Amino acid sequence: MHRTYSMRQSRAPTASQLQNPPPPPSSTKTGRLFGKGGFGHALRHRTAGQFGPDLAKKLSQLVKMEKNVMRSMELVGRERMEVAQQLSLWGEACDDDVSDVTDKLGVLLYEVGELEDQYVDRYDQYRVTIKSIRNIEASVQPSRDRKQKITDQIAQLKYKEPNSPKIVVLEQELVRAEAESLVAEAQLSNITREKLKAAYTYQFDALREHCEKLAIIAGYGKHLLDLIDDTPVTPGETRAAYDGYEASKAIIQDCEDALTNWVTANAAVSSKLSTRSRTLSQRRRANIPRTIDGHDLTAQDAPLNDRESGLWIPASAHKADGYEEEEEEEEEAAAPSIQEHTVEGESRGRQEAVAAA
Rank of each mutant, 00 (worst) to 15 (best):
I216A: 05
I216S: 03
I217N: 03
I217D: 02
A218Y: 03
Y220E: 00
G221M: 02
K222V: 05
H223F: 05
H223N: 11
L224Y: 02
L224F: 00
L225N: 10
L225K: 12
L227P: 00
L227N: 02
L227D: 00
L227Q: 02
I228P: 01
I228E: 02
D229Q: 01
D229K: 02
D229V: 01
D229C: 01
D229P: 01
D230K: 11
D230H: 10
T231R: 03
V233P: 00
T234R: 13
T234H: 10
T234P: 00
P235V: 02
T238Y: 04
T238I: 11
T238M: 07
T238K: 14
T238A: 08
R239E: 01
R239G: 03
R239P: 03
Y242S: 04
D243A: 11
G244A: 04
Y245S: 13
Y245N: 14
Y245C: 09
E246F: 05
A247P: 01
A250I: 06
I251A: 00
I251V: 02
I252V: 15
Q253G: 06
Q253A: 13
D254P: 03
A258Y: 07
L259N: 03
T260G: 06
T260S: 12
T260Q: 12
N261M: 07
N261E: 12
N261F: 05
W262G: 04
V263Y: 04
N266R: 08
N266Q: 11
N266W: 05
N266T: 15
N266C: 07
N266H: 07
A267C: 12
V269R: 14
S270K: 15
S270T: 14
S270G: 06
S271F: 14
S271Y: 14
S271T: 10
S274W: 05
S274Y: 05
S274F: 06
T275C: 06
R276Q: 14
R276C: 07
S277K: 10
S277D: 15
S277V: 08
R278K: 15
T279K: 13
L280A: 13
S281H: 13
S281Y: 14
Q282T: 09
Q282S: 12
Q282N: 15
Q282F: 08
Q282L: 12
Q282V: 05
R284F: 15
R285C: 10
A286D: 15
A286G: 08
A286R: 12
N287G: 11
N287A: 15
N287M: 15
I288G: 06
I288L: 11
P289E: 05
P289N: 05
R290P: 04
T291R: 14
I292Q: 12
D293Q: 13
G294H: 13
G294R: 13
G294W: 11
H295Q: 12
H295N: 13
H295F: 11
D296G: 10
L297A: 10
L297K: 07
L297R: 08
Q300G: 09
Q300W: 11
Q300E: 15
Q300T: 15
D301K: 12
D301P: 05
D301G: 14
D301F: 15
D301N: 14
A302Y: 12
P303K: 08
P303E: 07
L304G: 08
L304E: 09
R307Y: 10
E308A: 10
S309H: 06
S309W: 04
G310I: 07
G310V: 08
W312K: 07
I313R: 01
I313G: 00
I313P: 00
I313N: 00
I313Y: 00
P314N: 06
P314H: 05
A315H: 07
A317Q: 09
A317W: 06
A317M: 08
H318S: 02
K319F: 08
